[in-house]
Amino acid sequence: MHESLRRLASEEVMVERGDMRRVRVELLDGDHVSVDVHRRANGGDLLDKVCDNLDIVEKDFFGLLHLQRGDPRVWLDLNRRLSKTFRNEPWDVRLAVKFYPPEPSEVKDDNTRYQLSLAVRRDLLEGRLQCSNITHALLASYVLQAELGDREGPTSLSSIRAVPLHAINEEFEAQVDELYAKHKGQTPAEAELNYLDNAKKLSLYGSELHCVRDSEEVDLVLAVNSHGISIYRDGVLMNRIPWAKISKISYNKREFRLRLRPSECDEFETHVSFKLSSTRACKKLWRCSVEHHMFFRRWEPVPVEVIPGLRRLGLRRLSCRRTLRQIRDSNECAPVA
C-alpha cells in the first residue's frame, strides 16, 4: 500500500514537471534568470511573471524580445502560446522596453523608471541611440549619481556600463567628473528622473528602427516612436510624419504603405510607400507601427478586423494590452500612499 502511494506520488511529480517549461530571461542590466512557466502559458503570462519577480508595477511599457531567423529584435506575441513560438529548451527571451513613455515623469513607480533608465543605457551602448559627447557625459554623470551617490574621488565609467568603452578617454572622464560634482545631494530616484528627462530629448529616444528603400531605391531608415514615423537618410532627419497625419497603415508583400491626410494646402490624400527586404520584415514594420499608434493614440486597444474569406489576414494579432491613456487614467485614480 505504501509502495503504491509512493509510486503514485512520484508519477504526479513527473506529470507536474512535465507540464512546466524552463525560460531563460536576460534582464536589462545584463543578468540572466530562469523562470518556469506552464507549457500552455502565453507570452503575456511570461511577461507578467518576469515583471512580478522584478517588482515592476507598470508592466504595459515592457515586452519580451527573442531571436527569430537571425533577427534578435522580434517581439514576443503576448497572446500566443509560448510552445508555438519556441521548440528546444531553454526558451531564451530578453526583457526590453517596448513603448517608451514620452514623459518619464508620468511614470509613477520608481522601479519602473529604473528599468526604463537601464533600457536607455542599453540603447546607447548598443548604438541604437546617438547623442553628442557633452550629452553623453551629462547622462553618464546622472548614472554615477544614481549608482554611487555623493561619492568623492575618481570614478570608473567602465564598471557601471554607462557609455560605450570606445567613447571613454581622459577628457571625457574629466567632463563627467565635473558634471557629477554638480549633482551632489540628489537621491537615486531624482538622478534617474533627470537622466530620463535629458534622454527623452534625443531624436531617436524610444525609436524602433527599420531599414527601407524609397521608390528611387535610396536606402532610408524609418524610426517608429511615440510621436509618429521619422525618415532618416545617412543619419540625417529628412521628414517627420506625426500619428495625427496618418490615416491608414498597410502592407502588401514587401511594400509598406502610409496614407496621409490632406493638409490645408492639399486637396487630396497622399500615399507614401517604401520597400523592404522581405515580407517578414515588412510585416514586422507594419505591426510595430500599428502597435505604437494604438498605444500612444488610442483610448483603448482595437483588434484588427478579420477579412472574411482571407483567413491568413486574421493572424495579424497585436501585442498591446493597455494604452498610454488607460495607464494615465489608472494612475490618476490610484490612491495616494
Rank of each mutant, 00 (worst) to 15 (best):
E126H: 15
G127T: 08
L129H: 10
Q130L: 05
Q130Y: 06
C131V: 05
C131R: 01
N133S: 12
A137S: 07
A137M: 01
L138D: 05
L139N: 04
L139A: 10
S141T: 04
V143M: 07
Q145W: 04
Q145H: 01
E147G: 06
G149D: 06
G149I: 00
P154F: 01
I160A: 10
I160S: 06
I160F: 02
R161M: 08
R161G: 10
P164N: 06
L165N: 03
N169A: 02
E170F: 05
E170V: 14
A174L: 06
Q175R: 12
V176E: 02
D177H: 14
Y180V: 05
A181T: 08
K182Q: 03
H183N: 11
K184E: 15
Q186L: 15
L193N: 09
N194Y: 06
N194S: 13
Y195E: 00
Y195P: 05
L196E: 07
L196C: 12
N198P: 00
N198S: 02
K201H: 13
C211V: 11
D214G: 04
E217L: 09
V221D: 12
L222Y: 05
G228T: 02
Y232H: 09
Y232S: 05
D234G: 09
G235P: 04
L237E: 15
M238N: 12
M238L: 15
M238G: 13
N239D: 10
N239G: 03
R240N: 13
R240E: 15
I241Y: 14
A244W: 07
I249F: 05
S250W: 07
R254G: 01
E255W: 05
R257W: 04
R257G: 08
